[in-house]
Amino acid sequence: MAVPELFHTIEESGLSTWMRNSESVFGFYFILLFHTIGLSLLVGANAVVDLRILGVAADLPLKPLKRFFGIMWMGLGINVTTGILLLTAYPTKALTNPVFYVKLSFIALAVMTMQMINARVFADASLSEAAMIAKGKTMAKWSLVFWIGAITAGRLLSETYTYLTYGHHVAR
């Protein structure tokens, strides 16, 4: 498969080269660390809300959990930023790997579900708790499925790539 020249150009840039080659603790792994912290905020807060809708901690009032959406958006912001940086470090590695597009699809579905739960379950303050749960149940299940899918695909990226950098094929 021919790999677009653009990836090569990105890899030659100063930022990309620095992230890949820097010996500093603030290089590639620092960004990867923040990608993991973002994951724990984003998926962690989603898991709490989903589990509550699905009946865990049933005595806990649901409405104040609306505050958790702020944490989710913060986690998402961190991960979009760090994700773009990681992509800048290894564009060929990610974009030539089909699993990367599976991961992005799971994240798109998960974020859409998260926004739907926010809009349909939490936005209308006049809804009773029972009505909120009735509306949210299916979405909460899919939310958990999508996030598990996103984590799985993300982890698999480091096992499935076929090019590390432009022109550098990895035998599998």
Partner: peptide, 11 residues
């Protein structure tokens, strides 16, 4: 390990 991490830190 990562699913466990999200569950632990979230809750």
């Amino acid at each position: 390990h990562f699913i466990g991490l999200a569950l632990l830190i979230g809750t």
